[in-house]
Amino acid sequence: MAGSSHIRSRTSDGIIEAELLDQHILDEVVIREIGQSLTDLVDAGGDSVDVVVDFSQVAHLSSSALGMLITLNSRVQERGGRLMLTHISEPIGEVFRITRLDRVLEIHDTVVDARAELRGDS
């Protein structure tokens, strides 16, 4: 288990799991730090190219956080992986639907669901 003050991460079965620890992902500085931490994980991932980000703790996020996720998604895809978001609350899900980013970013209910999708079980 590894992490920063904003994320807790682990890698198993070739999948990087990162849990966001902040309740509010609104501050530009915090968003930059989260983005950098996630990018570092992806770049250091070696053969692990798929990433699951767990939003269980997140109650609010801003459009800057959406931008960070788009950039991260591109980075993961460049490495041939897939980025999946899980445990998205209903209001935050609405933010993704309104901005139509639910068409761009893969959203699953749980980490288990995301892992199953990555394994091709579903």
Binding site: S62, S63, L66, S74, I98
Partner: peptide
């Protein structure tokens, strides 16, 4: 415009 990383703030305010 979906892959552009910025420019959603005003849209969210309106929504």
């Amino acid at each position: 415009n979906l892959m552009i990383a910025s420019g959603r703030g005003l849209a969210l305010m309106r929504a």
